[in-house]
Each structure stands twice: as structure tokens, then as C-alpha cells.
Design a protein around this nucleic acid. Structure first.
Lengths: 215, 215
DNA sequence: GTTGTAACTTTACCGTTGTCAAACAACATT
DNA sequence: AATGTTGTTTGACAACGGTAAAGTTACAAC
């Protein structure tokens, strides 16, 4: 049995409950006392471990937005899986998705914490897309950045806007069954869009180019 | 010059400012006093005209979510424009979009006000998609509801998750230039997906059917 | 003008919430 | 065992936001 007093352990427990509360109710809606109730300790202790609500939120933020192995931005081998794969990864961290949604709602035009680093990471993914384009495995006439945005849209929207998903499909967003169906759908979509790519992008020149590395 | 006292006019002014405030800060973040400040009157007057914060929000909600001509769910003549057209309509009412985003963030699984009516309207659109499928102008192997969700995703996401859009493209979501580029992109996407539809869906039977109706 | 009504303001209030400070209890060190 | 340190609880509080009720002013009807 663990010690009755353990600073790190309680800090961790507070953080966990804070993640839940913040992700459910957002910053303004979240209540420190509620976090305390979930963690079975007094709200004053939270203020002792962290400096206050703002700092606690910051800590939670740093925790959830810290790059982990989940942030692996590697592209799938088959470009047709771009949508589906991105979705699969997104579905792994629903809390993070909820933070993104709160952020979207509250951050009108203001810069968002860690914007530079996150932008860097996103740019990395975009570079991967451009590489695929150079290899002729993705259509070149689609702006890579906009394509990336489309990928994120399809990977994010149904589970962020759960009301809409429910109204349209009848299933909740995080529902397992829906996730399977959506994954399948995205695969089909990817196939339709990108399978015939090589032929499509070379339809300008009547003859297919010799398949070599990126020109 | 108008009368110094006009119930309807002040009600309207309160509502306008309330829309702004709620759409910017959400229900919890919104401050009655701030709405009062914007409308240049005392917060108590707001409570006098409406019953309170909750009722005011309800009123705003009813106002913004009331079906208008903007809710025209008619489908574009060319299925390839499905994405782009939907986006064009979405971009017309950014406040509404922000409400949707707040709703998405806060409504975890809870039912959302007017869900039945809104679902009905969405179903109408879905029926239109199925009709297009029946006519062979949209691929039949794509679930119409999921396709509808994809349309909404592409039409909504970049302007709802403005941080992401900014980080990926460098432009803000509501930026005119971005909107033009995104519109164009969605058109291309639609063309790539749905232009070859007739051929695609008939790839099962080796021979193409006689081309009838709108090609 | 008088009076009544409705728009608006002022004063006051109360519950909630985050925060601070002091008291307390467990653990480590000596 | 004594003592210091640190995790934890308790009590209290000040600020803030929404709300209620009383007071005041404009406008209309008579």
C-alpha cells in the first residue's frame, strides 16, 4: 500500500481530474471544487499544489499538448489511407480533441499557447504531403496545405461536433460502431481520390512518365 | 430621431449584443454586465426584459437557430459542387458557426435544444443526397449519411477551428482570401470525387450503361 | 394638469468561487 | 524523543456576477 502522503501522486490525481473537468466544461465552466470532489480532497489543496486555476489549466494544457509518441506524424504507406489513418490517431485521444474544440470556441483570433511549436509540427506533416506529391502519389494540383486541412477536417469533425454526428447518423461520435463505419468510409474516400492519382496527374502529357524518384 | 424609450428597439439591441458576447465567450464566459456595457444600459434592464441569463441565451438561441432562407437545403445542380456550395453557405453566418462550436464543446452527450427539428432538416438534405445516388450522379457505395457528414466537415472545420487553419495555412479562417482558396479547393475535390461517378459506380458491370439523363 | 403605465436606474442582496492564512498531522532527521 | 519540514485540512474572506425590489423618469390617456 502506498504512503498516505505523496505529493507527486496527489498532483497526478489532481491533474487527471482536472483534465476531465476542463475537457468537459471548459475553463470558465470548470469548477475547482468539482475537481477537488473528484479527487477526494479539498479545493484549497489544489491551490496549494498549483498556483491557482489559471496555472492549473496551464499545467493541464502542457500535459495534454506535450508531443508524445501519439503525435507521430508519419504518413501511412498508402496515400489512400491518409484520411482513415489520421482519424484513427485522432480517435485515440478524445480528451485532446475536446481541448482543441474548447480552444476553437474560445480563441477567436487570439494566438494560442504553443502555437509556434504546434505549427512547426503541422508543417512537418505538410512537408510529408508535398513529398508524396513530388513522388506523384498525390495529385499535384491540390494545395498541400489545404489538403492537410481537409484531412484534419475529416478526421476531427464528426467527433468534435458530436451533436451533428448524432443528428445525422443517429450514433454518437465516440461510439465504437460509428468509428468503424467512419473509418471505412474514409478509406473508400481516400481510394476514390488518390488511387488513380498517377494516371490523373499525368493526363496532361499524353504519355506516362518513366517512374523514377522525385524529379 | 427615435423616441428615447422604445421597448422593442432596446430588446433588439440587447439581443444583438448578446449574440456577440455569447458567440465570443460562450454561456459561462459571457457576462451580463458586458452585454449591458455594449448596449449602453444597465445590466438590470436586461434582466427586466428577459428573465435572466438563461432565458436571454435561449432567446438568442431561438433567434440564431431559427430556420431562415439561409437554411435553404437545396442541393446544387452539379454534385461536384456539393462541398463548395455547402461551404459558401456556412461562411455566410459566422455567428451561427460559433454557436455550433460552443455547442459542440459543451454538449458532451446531452441532447441539444431543438434537436428534433434540426435533425429533421438535416435528414431532408440527406434524402436529397440519396436521390442523387439513385440517379447515379453520386456513388452508391458511399453511405449517404456519412457523405453528408463529410460535406459538413469540409464546410465547417476550417472556420470553426481557426487556430488550426491559421497554423496550417497562415491565414485566418474568416479571411476572405482563404475562403476563396478553400472554395476553389473544395470544387476541385468535388470534381475529382464525383465527376467520374457514372463510370465508377458501373465498374461492376463491365460494360458502361447507355448514357441517359444528365451526363 | 393628473394619473397610470411601462421603460429604465439605483440600491441592495445573496450565493458562488477562487484564494489566502493559519492550524494540524504525518514523515524524516537528529 | 525532539524538532523541522512538508503534505493536508480547516476556517475565513473578498470579489464577482446574477437577481430582486424599490425608486425614478418618460410618455400616453384622460
Amino acid at each position: 500500500m502506498g504512503k498516505t502522503r505523496d505529493s507527486d501522486r496527489t498532483r497526478k490525481r489532481i491533474l487527471e481530474c482536472a483534465v476531465k473537468e476542463f475537457s468537459e466544461r471548459g475553463f470558465d465552466g470548470a469548477r475547482i471544487s468539482e475537481i477537488a470532489r473528484r479527487a477526494r480532497l479539498s479545493k484549497q489543496l489544489i491551490h496549494h499544489h498549483f498556483r491557482g486555476k489559471e496555472a492549473l489549466f496551464q499545467a493541464v494544457h502542457d500535459l495534454k499538448f506535450r508531443p508524445t509518441t501519439l503525435w507521430n506524424e508519419t504518413l501511412p504507406p498508402d496515400p489512400a489511407d491518409l484520411f482513415a489513418e489520421r482519424f484513427r490517431k485522432r480517435a485515440k485521444d478524445l480528451d485532446y480533441l475536446r481541448f482543441l474544440t474548447w480552444e476553437a470556441a474560445s480563441a477567436r483570433n487570439r494566438k494560442v499557447p504553443g502555437e509556434a511549436a504546434r505549427g512547426e509540427r503541422l508543417a512537418q506533416y505538410g512537408a510529408g504531403l508535398r513529398l508524396l506529391q513530388a513522388e506523384g502519389r498525390l495529385p499535384r494540383d491540390l494545395d498541400s496545405r489545404l489538403l492537410q486541412l481537409a484531412i484534419l477536417a475529416l478526421a476531427t469533425y464528426p467527433m468534435a461536433f458530436t451533436q451533428i454526428t448524432r443528428m445525422v447518423t443517429g450514433h454518437a461520435g465516440p461510439d465504437r460502431r460509428f468509428q468503424r463505419e467512419w473509418h471505412e468510409f474514409l478509406r473508400k474516400l481516400g481510394k476514390k481520390l488518390f488511387d488513380g492519382t498517377t494516371r490523373t496527374i499525368e493526363s496532361r502529357s499524353s504519355a506516362p512518365r518513366a517512374s523514377r524518384g522525385p524529379g
